[in-house]
Each structure stands twice: as C-alpha cells, then as structure tokens.
Amino acid sequence: MLVVKFYVTFINLGKTHKDMSRIGKAPIAIPSGVSISVSDKNLLTVKGPKGELTQKVDSDITVKEEDGNIIVSRPTEQKKHKALHGLYRALIQNMVIGVTEGYKTTQELVGVGYRAANNGNTLELTLGFSHPIVFVLPQEVKVTTTAEKGKNPTITLESTDKQLIGQVAAKIRSFRKPEPYKGKGVKFVGEVLRRKAGKSAKK
C-alpha cells in the first residue's frame, strides 16, 4: 500500500507583467456577509459564509477597503510591482469567491477495476497497480466519492481555497494520468483528451 501525504507549493499564474498590471487596477466588490481585515504585518483575512482565508501580502503592496470595495495598489511602475499588483489582486478575488461560493471540481476514474473510496479526508484509490494508493488530503479540502453501476467512479473535491483545490486535484490526476490511446486514467469530468490512434498490426 502506497501512502501519499500532500504538500502545498506556490502556483505561478502564468500572466505577463502587462496583464497583471491591468488586473491589479480593478477594484474587488465586497459581497454582503463578507468582511476583510489587514494586520500591521500585511496579513489579509477574508471572512464569509463558507469560512475564513488568510493571505500574506508582499510589504510593497497595499490592500485597503474603500466604499464597499477592496482596493489593491502598488508603489511604482516597476515590472516587479506591476506583477505583484496583479497577482495579489487575483488571489484576493479568489479568496472572496471562495468564502462566498466555494470551489468544486469532479474527476472520474476510467479503467476496468478502477475504484475510489474515502474515509473522511483519506482517499483510497485502486488504479490498476499491484497496490492501492492511500492519499491523505489537507483538512481544507472536502472529498466525496461515488460508485454507481454502469458509470465511472468519481471523486468530488470542495474547498474555499482555489489554489489548494487545484493542487490537490492535480496530485490525484498524477497518480494515473490518462493515457492517449484508450483514455484510461484519472481525468476531470468534461475534460477533452488528445487521443492517439493505436498502432495497427503488421500483416
């Protein structure tokens, strides 16, 4: 039995400096039931109906509440500050959505004998190996599994943290990435795979 623990790494959002600068200038509306606070160490806390999230903000970036909006600002037009400006604005927007609506993603297991079951936040996967894979998810991510006759088993993840749920889903997918011929593996529901034609037998 293979037991896997989860570790968080930081994701690069892959935007250009120009894109991030433009994103950073847009104010973020604060929905009803959501409150924000920023500590003297630039630690941002966002609270809402679904929970609470915190984010350490770079000391060069300013976050404040103004007229029902969250305003993110930068000190200069340097590339570094433009990139940080857009990055934190995007992260804060995700936090607001997370504590109000939450994030959800569903994956399916494609393959004969593939199974998924969970006990709390411990997920056990049977993916065609000689041993099951036991994956311990972070407490911030809720997992449920389904197994209906005639349908592929599914894994559903829910969390207030967009970055974290994305990392967890990617980790689960990595245990058995879909192969390009028959599509066997762990895939997102609705994911379109690039399929390759099988090699024809020589005559």
Rank of each mutant, 00 (worst) to 15 (best):
M1G: 05
L2D: 14
V3D: 02
V3S: 13
V3P: 00
V4D: 04
Y7E: 15
L13A: 01
L13T: 02
L13Q: 07
T16C: 05
H17D: 09
K18P: 00
I23T: 07
K25H: 03
P27M: 13
P31S: 06
P31M: 11
S35P: 00
S37T: 08
V38Q: 05
D40L: 12
D40T: 12
K41T: 12
K41L: 12
N42H: 02
L44N: 04
T45R: 15
K47G: 00
G48D: 08
G48R: 13
P49G: 09
K50L: 15
L53V: 04
L53T: 04
D58L: 07
S59G: 01
I61W: 00
T62R: 14
T62S: 11
E65A: 14
E65L: 09
E66K: 15
D67Y: 01
I71E: 06
V72W: 03
S73R: 05
S73G: 03
S73Q: 08
R74M: 07
R74N: 05
P75Q: 11
P75H: 09
T76G: 02
K80I: 07
A83R: 09
L87G: 01
Y88L: 04
A90E: 12
A90K: 15
A90Y: 15
I92C: 03
V96L: 07
I97R: 09
I97M: 07
G98L: 12
G102L: 09
Y103N: 13
Y103H: 13
K104D: 09
K104A: 05
T106M: 13
Q107A: 14
G111S: 10
G111E: 08
G113D: 03
A116I: 10
N119L: 10
G120N: 05
G120T: 04
G120H: 05
T122F: 02
E124H: 04
E124G: 03
T126N: 08
G128M: 11
H131A: 08
P132Y: 02
V134E: 10
L137D: 01
P138R: 11
P138D: 08
Q139A: 15
K142D: 00
T144S: 09
T145A: 13
T145N: 10
A147G: 06
E148M: 11
G150S: 08
T156I: 08
T156D: 05
L157K: 02
E158Q: 14
T160W: 01
Q163P: 00
L164A: 06
G166D: 04
K171A: 13
F175D: 08
R176P: 00
P178K: 14
P178E: 14
P180K: 15
P180V: 13
P180H: 15
K182A: 06
K184L: 09
G185M: 10
V186H: 04
K187I: 12
F188K: 15
V192W: 02
L193P: 00
A197S: 12
A197E: 09
G198M: 10
G198D: 02
K199F: 11
K199H: 13
S200N: 08
K202I: 05
K203F: 03
K203N: 02
